[in-house]
Write a protein that binds this DNA or RNA. Structure first.
Length: 401
RNA sequence: GGUGGGGUAGCGAAGCGGUCAAACGCAGCAGACUGUAAAUCUGCCCUCUUAGAGUUCGAUGGUUCGAAUCCAUCCCCCACCA
């Protein structure tokens, strides 16, 4: 690849890219010196489940690695241990050192499903932040003005709406920017919501006498609901370590319109190919379900395996299209004593309370051995192999013990 | 330091002495319809038993036959002005 091709390749799918010329210079210089660039990516240590939303960024990092660059994966443990009171969405609880360590380990296991460990440098920002004295912090904050901070969309809106903004929130972008200085980042990658923070990194590097980093943002993809950004707290995510059938099932529930985005940003299919498929669906040549099946299988294949992908797809059809039973049903051990149906369901883990169980029964969601039961007062004697089905997803097989 | 506004079920938000387990919206769950998609319709959505009962409305104590609603004290949050 010549340099222009590299630039095209690296900036594909990016929303913001600041800027091509700077990156070109950096690439040329690095090539001349026979080294790779340092690509920074920051991770929040409180959410150890990597999901498809993260994959969008990780894919890009991987592409940088393919061209020989180094990914500096920063785990924001320092900030994570302080917590984030940014009231609006929700409070992030401060993490303990143990939790951070556990999460960090889990992170590594997961990101290396995508990244090349040989070209990844994992750093914790407590390494430098932890050493800073209060006067260092004050000096650092002298570099940024309130007006600059208020330039951030999020802040200005909240300020205008008389909503709280804590000092901590002002400080965090600064910490993140300082991270860039400390790892001498050549480019920082993030979601579009990170643009301000990434740019602040540029500013700070300039002040500290470094060549400012390039900045690249990638879209935040919507989660399963098709509206809100995929995130763990909204529980609309697909984790990359989920069991195959879960992963597949979740993907099948994605609104149709969203799947094209998933093809492009998660699977990195070429844009024209995605568009071609989209067109086929629009003109009726391809059933949307078939297209989504391809998506589901492709994602499962990528993170788990081809056989599992096929199996997940088949089982899905069996359970939901043909309403048959899955081939593995969780077993619950119960004594062979007569008990109320509701109690049985609670004990079998099919419902959280008797009330919920009653609701399910009354609404006709419960089947025992494929026969609908509708009397919540029913008494049951559990039998070996008895299968209780609750709704579309709840299955339990009784084992006497 | 001053002024004003708040704390209600997972979230948002009504209620402001009885008819309140508490409107409404969102989320969630189930059923119908489907491609477990979306949209739509129906029902459910604190806990426990059948109609019924028991715990809820920041905390504690009080006034009342009766309080989420009134009073007192306390805790917490927010904005504005200094």
């Amino acid at each position: 690849m010549n340099i222009e091709e590299q630039l095209d390749f690296l900036s594909a799918r990016a929303v913001d890219f600041i800027n091509r010329d700077d990156l070109k210079k950096k690439l040329e210089k690095a090539a001349a010196e026979g080294r790779g660039l340092r690509i920074k990516y920051g991770a929040d240590p409180s959410a150890p489940d990597i999901h498809l939303g993260h994959v969008v960024g990780l894919n890009k990092l991987r592409e940088f690695q393919e061209l020989g660059h180094t990914v500096v994966f920063i785990i924001g443990d320092f900030t994570g241990m302080i917590g984030d009171p940014s009231g609006r969405s929700q409070t992030r609880k401060p993490l303990t050192q143990e939790q951070v360590a556990i999460n960090a380990k889990s992170y590594q296991e997961q990101i290396f499903k995508i990244l090349d460990p040989e070209k990844t440098e994992i750093r914790f920002n407590s390494e430098w932040c932890g050493k800073m004295k209060f006067d260092d912090v004050i000096r650092l904050s002298a570099h940024v003005t309130v007006a600059q901070m208020l330039a951030r969309d999020d802040f200005s809106k909240r300020y205008a709406a008389n909503q709280p903004i804590s000092m901590v929130e002002f400080l965090y972008p600064l910490v993140q920017a300082y991270d860039s200085v400390m790892v001498k980042a050549d480019l920082e990658l993030g979601g579009t919501d990170q643009l301000f923070n990434l740019l602040l990194g540029r500013e700070l590097q300039k002040v500290m006498g470094q060549v400012p980093q390039c900045v690249m943002t990638l879209p935040l993809i919507e989660g399963l609901d098709g509206v809100k950004k995929m995130s763990k707290s909204l529980n609309n995510y697909v984790g990359i370590s989920e069991p195959a059938r879960e992963m597949y099932g979740k993907l099948m529930s994605v609104p149709d319109d969203l799947m094209w985005k998933y093809f492009e940003y998660i699977l990195c299919w070429p844009k024209d190919e995605v568009q071609a498929m989209h067109a086929k669906v629009v003109n009726g040549e391809l059933h949307p379900r078939a297209a989504k099946d391809r998506l589901g299988q492709a994602v499962v294949k990528r993170f788990i395996g081809e056989a599992e992908a096929l199996q997940a797809s088949e089982e899905f059809t069996r359970i939901f299209a043909q309403k048959e039973l899955p081939d593995e049903i969780p077993e619950v051990v119960l004594p062979a004593e007569e008990m109320g149906l509701l109690a049985l369901m609670v004990q079998a883990g099919l419902s959280k309370s008797n009330g919920e169980a009653r609701r399910l029964v009354v609404q006709g969601a419960v089947k025992i051995n494929d026969e609908k039961v509708s009397d919540p007062r029913m008494q049951i004697v559990p039998e070996e192999g008895m299968i209780i089905r609750s709704g579309k997803r709840g299955f339990v097989q009784i084992k006497i013990g």
